[in-house]
């Protein structure tokens, strides 16, 4: 895919699932990557160096806990000090809690999910967008969910936090357009990841039965949409939510 070669992307949640695949697709398309993850891990670093060598791109691991505002700030300071441009931000990292009914979901649990899925994403975006403003260009892609649009699958607090991501995406697209920064969201459906495994199995089967393509999606299929929206191929697309759900 043209339009990513030579760009530098900050990608969160790169140690597993969709984030890991976004990292791989970006590298395969010639992008350098700041690979954000919570914990330093030898296996993870080995994988990064392999992907880097195979694709002749630079991959810089950045470790921070998204639940700690100071760690987010310190991580962005490290990115700034490399003096590289930041052309793309892909906010993938998120959490989902075990399935409970609405009436049995505590406010504390809801706040925990919102903290990671919305507020931490927002804080990181505030910092990175300022780098993009000084460059007068950039592209931001946020991972939402079809749960935010359809109300299913997943839990109340997850769906609500991902709906907040969509609202933020649309507002930010308007605000950052003056700085030549595009902001879009990808809303995956049922995807074959660890997080997908937390969905109630009965509910999962019901949803797959409703999917036109009658299967779960792969992390790579979501990553491809992220790559497209991040690239120059999507240069006139902003404020949009692209469903990657196999047709529901």
């Amino acid at each position: 895919m043209c339009g990513l070669s030579g760009k530098t992307a900050v990608i969160t949640g790169t140690n597993r699932g969709i984030g890991k695949e976004v990292l791989r697709v970006f590298a395969e398309n010639g992008a350098n990557v700041f690979a954000c993850a919570r914990n330093q891990n030898a296996q993870f670093e080995f994988e990064l160096s392999t992907i880097s060598e195979e694709n002749n791109v630079n991959i810089f691991p950045i470790y921070f806990d998204l639940s700690d505002p100071q760690q987010i700030k310190t991580a962005v300071q490290k990115i700034r000090k490399t003096a590289l441009t930041v052309d793309v931000l892909v906010n993938v990292a998120g959490i989902v809690e075990e399935s409970t009914s609405f009436g049995m979901t505590s406010i504390e649990k809801m706040k925990k999910v919102f903290d990671i899925n919305f507020f931490s994403l927002t804080q990181l975006t505030q910092y990175i967008s300022r780098i993009m403003i000084s460059q007068n260009h950039g592209s931001i892609v946020n991972i939402s969910s079809i749960a935010a649009i359809d109300g299913t699958p997943a839990q109340y607090e997850y769906a609500a936090s991902k709906a907040a991501v969509i609202g933020g995406t649309k507002k930010l697209a308007r605000e950052l357009a003056d700085h030549n920064i595009r902001v879009n969201a990808v809303a995956p459906g049922i995807i074959d990841t660890d997080m997908g495994g937390k969905i109630d199995p009965v509910l999962k089967d019901e949803i797959i039965a409703k999917v036109i393509m009658k299967r779960m999606g792969t992390p790579r299929e979501v990553a491809n949409a992220c790559a497209f929206l991040s690239s120059d191929l999507a240069s006139y697309i902003t404020g949009q939510v692209i469903r990657v759900d196999g047709g529901i």
Partner: peptide, 21 residues
Amino acid sequence: SVGHMSLIAALEDAFDIMFDT
């Protein structure tokens, strides 16, 4: 408000800092 963020970004670059919100 748009110019304000451009100013903040310019100052962050000039002094190699990151402002708190």
